[in-house]
């Protein structure tokens, strides 16, 4: 009788502990440590105005589809280099769990590109000021000024900057005449299609997506489509805990 009571006590206490731990972990991580809150897109005083942002609805992103990447790389003359070190990517697809952390339920491939952070660590690291944040929130590179030191590559927590180890022209089969190429010894990354925005067009990945999974707009405009989506859905950012304030969001 005594033995049974003890066993019962341990069993119940153990179950209670497990339940408590479950609830605590649910409350602590589920409470939104990594999940995006309005602070992620709300304008900081003094930087109101235009801030371009992008939102991927990964539920609509088909497995194995790379149309956005192909269109991006074609319009911006990104060379197709097979070797792992020499690879140049403005946009790519990665395992969602690796990209977005444990809150991402699926391990399906998710598109990734430069996050155009509001606090870009690459711009802080650049010794020549050739990578900088523009007034519209786009983190741009002045290829004329880049000396190829690769400080930005080291400081970018997302690994979204590529370096031209070889002449990219040699690896370009069908270049787009309207956009320049790069030369050996400079870094490059996504420019949020600033070349297309200036002509009133949307980014090429947004236009290329057959599912309409990519939204693009002004994060500081409460009536923009991207803001409506951000306010109405649960979204994730890449490594928000670092404080870089990325402008790229994901719906899982």
């Amino acid at each position: 009788m005594m033995k049974n009571d003890r066993r019962e006590f341990i069993r119940k206490a153990g179950m209670g502990l497990l339940a408590g731990m479950g609830a605590a972990s649910g409350l602590l991580t589920g409470g939104g440590f990594e999940r995006t809150t309005s602070a992620a897109w709300a304008a900081v005083p003094g930087e109101e105005g235009l801030r371009w942002g992008m939102l991927f609805d990964t539920r609509r992103c088909p497995e194995g589809c790379t149309l956005c990447i192909e269109s991006c790389h074609h319009t911006h003359n990104v060379p197709d280099i097979a070797s792992l070190e020499g690879k140049i990517e403005w946009m790519h697809k990665e395992n969602g769990r690796e990209l977005l952390g444990s809150l991402c339920a699926s391990t399906a491939a998710v598109p990734a590109l430069c996050n155009h952070c509001a606090e870009p660590s690459c711009a802080r690291a650049c010794p020549t000021g050739s990578i900088f944040r523009r007034t519209d929130g786009i983190v741009a590179i002045d290829y004329h000024r880049c000396v190829g030191c690769r400080s930005c590559m080291q400081s970018c927590p997302y690994g979204e900057v590529s370096f031209n180890w070889s002449d990219p022209r040699a690896a370009l089969k069908n270049p787009t005449v309207e956009y320049p190429t790069r030369q050996r010894g400079v870094v490059e990354k996504c420019n949020f299609c600033s070349d297309r925005l200036v002509r009133g067009k949307k980014p090429s990945c947004v236009e290329a997506c057959p599912e309409g999974a990519i939204s693009f707009g002004n994060l500081n405009d409460p009536s923009s489509e991207i803001r409506r989506l951000l306010e109405s859905s649960e979204t994730l950012q890449r490594k928000p805990e670092l404080g870089t304030r990325p402008s790229v969001f994901y719906i899982i």
């Binding site: 235009l50 925005l197 200036v198 002509r199 009133g200 949307k202 309409g212 489509e225 109405s232």
Partner: peptide
């Protein structure tokens, strides 16, 4: 319906070219 409105975006108020 609310979820369906995502596709049509307002034309990007692009940098005034």
């Amino acid at each position: 319906f609310h979820a369906g409105t995502e596709g049509e975006a307002p034309a990007s108020q692009a940098a005034q070219a």
